[in-house]
Design a binder for these strands. Structure first.
Lengths: 344, 344
DNA sequence: TATAGACGTGCAAACGCTTGCGGAAGAACT
DNA sequence: AGTTCTTCCGCAAGCGTTTGCACGTCTATA
């Protein structure tokens, strides 16, 4: 009772023709007579024949699969990103092989091995927080598996990536606050070494300088994103010599913690003190005191764009533009954008 | 400049032995002499040989891949679930092929086709909201691809599934409110046809009856989950004849909307009116007036458990317990559980 | 010394499909 | 009638691996 699935061979036997004819008939190859073509297609339908993709993958050395490695699937940012990735992949007739690194370098390496074994055609990676050693990415070059990094980009030359520029969004945020009349603007930034932190700071300095408010380092504090450190930073800012009337926070979660702290200090939100943050998570619609605005980073779009460029790379490759010799590297920067929340 | 990856054949040639010997040597087969075994392994390392999985997949008719189809990757529940799935799969040496249906039946069908083509070993599905026709699932039986459904289960017999029982959690919620002194307890439930809605209602009735509070249908309203309908329901409940002192809401989002509405009506949250909801999303930590408690549905664990049972099924299959003849169907029910939020 | 076992290795088929090439048959030309 | 095209189809190789089987060559046993 094998119940084997029908193969091309089976069809050939039943019709007393050769497998090659069947194969070509199914592909609508021009050199097959109309008569046999329809006979084959008819029987294939009857038998509910479906090509064995694993055989084809093997035979063609191509899997129409793209590997995706990201730090944490359950985080809002990445789950939006994977959604964009899946949609774009599906549109391009690719499927998605998924792995999460949990921000562990080891797991990241393992996943790359797995992906390599599965012979994915290309790779989409947002690197783990703790990755400093990039050799496992470099190692992929010899396999000719293109990688497109997104959001979290390793600091190595000659790579493709898609990212979202936080500088501009930050400038927009500061300018927005400026036009609202704020002159002393604080910032609760993220962990110091993070590139994301640096970008925000750059934007901050740039905008403050342009607005002829001088940059006061005392108004910018780092935190490690824990509630405690956020509260501490908030308190320090709000009791400092120059008390800010507005604060830009590293992300929405930080904003929410900071808001709580400010309320604890009997300050009226959006009156005594305003907040602007990054991410624009859906939850900001629901909190009693959401930040006035958020810098949107478009995770869905980032994922989508990254996937599209990867697919483009794959097509170039199969078009024989082989070997990254005349290599141009995609460096795609989406612009972040300030989104105002209805003051409602 | 082919830059072909090294194959088993290449090793064989360089060592002047046959491919079968190389293959066995690499697998540590006992019938290979120690001497050649080490020679082979040594050369394999030098050449950075890696087996071509696509060839193996093809040869063995097994891909060590499980397909996952769920409605919406960016929803908190499912992103937690996929996280659990990925972790469990990785632990069992499987990889995850991902697809999202966007709650469209057509896309769901397409995805199943794709998965089938990719010859996934098994399938994990949470069905789309609008799926009424289950033929595309039935069609998979003849391919002998086991499916484990989770969370959203089709109403057909003889399937494996993992789900979370909402009845118990609801009972816990009501009991909790009862011990807190509440006697008039309302419910804002979800869309009427959803099984999830029915389960909550069942739990509600069961608990109310057990507590010797009689079941008053006027205290239970349905909504379609939009903010407007939630607000309307809330208002109706709170202005009704018997005004509840506590309300159980379909999920956290509903709770947040209801809270807003209650505040608009100048009621003091947790004093005039208490809320309990389902899901226990992280955001409840951040809102100013979170529900007092949530019924946790353990999406991560559901995903994990579903994956584990699928893997078990696959192992049974390869052990020749073939053909779902002596079929026992897994029906795994996780118990939901009430989680109290610090009144902080 | 013949013989059975162990040990180590190679042959070849099989998995399902694609594709370059060659060949047979007929049609259309000179 | 002979030649050249078309048109249609089959042969067979090849993709990289695994694995049942047979074939040696020793060593230990009778």
């Amino acid at each position: 009772m094998k119940n084997q699935l029908p193969t091309i061979k089976e069809i050939a036997k039943q019709l007393n023709i050769s497998v090659s004819t069947v194969s070509r008939a199914l592909h609508d190859h021009k050199s097959i007579g109309l008569r046999t073509k329809t006979r084959v297609q008819e029987l294939a339908r009857q038998l509910q024949y479906e090509p064995n993709q694993t055989a084809i993958f093997f035979q063609q050395g191509k899997t129409f699969t793209i590997g995706v490695i990201l730090p944490e699937l359950s985080e809002a940012f990445f789950s939006a990103a994977i959604s964009g990735i899946e949609d774009a992949a599906h549109k391009g007739n690719y499927t998605v092989l998924l792995g999460q690194s949990h921000d562990s370098v080891d797991k990241e390496k393992q996943l790359i091995e797995t992906m390599k074994k599965h012979r994915v055609d290309g790779l989409l990676i947002s690197i783990s927080k703790n990755t400093n050693d990039y050799s496992h990415f470099e190692a992929l070059r010899r396999y000719n598996i293109p990688i497109v990094f997104f959001d979290r980009i390793p600091k190595i030359p000659n790579i493709h990536y898609v990212a979202c520029n936080m500088v501009n969004g930050t400038v927009q945020a500061i300018n927005f606050l400026f036009t609202k009349g704020h002159r002393i603007i604080g910032m609760i930034n993220g962990p110091e070494k993070l590139p994301a932190t640096k970008e925000r700071l750059d934007g901050y300095i740039q905008a403050m300088t342009k607005s002829r408010l001088k940059y006061d380092p005392a108004l910018v504090l780092n935190c490690d994103l824990t509630t405690e450190s956020v509260c501490a930073a908030t308190e320090k800012l709000l009791t400092g010599k120059r008390r800010p009337t507005a604060i830009v926070t590293f992300n929405d979660y930080v904003a929410l913690d900071a808001v709580q702290q400010a309320r604890k200090m009997k300050l009226k939100i959006n009156k005594d003190i305003c907040f602007v943050s990054y991410a624009n998570l859906p939850l900001t619609n629901y909190t009693a005191f959401p930040p006035m605005a958020s810098v949107e980073q478009f995770p869905y779009q980032q994922g989508q764009k990254a996937t599209e460029t990867l697919i483009e790379l794959l097509q170039q490759k199969s078009n024989g533009d082989a070997d990254n010799s005349n290599a141009t590297y995609y460096k795609i920067i989406l612009e972040s954008q300030l989104v105002l929340h209805d003051g409602k």
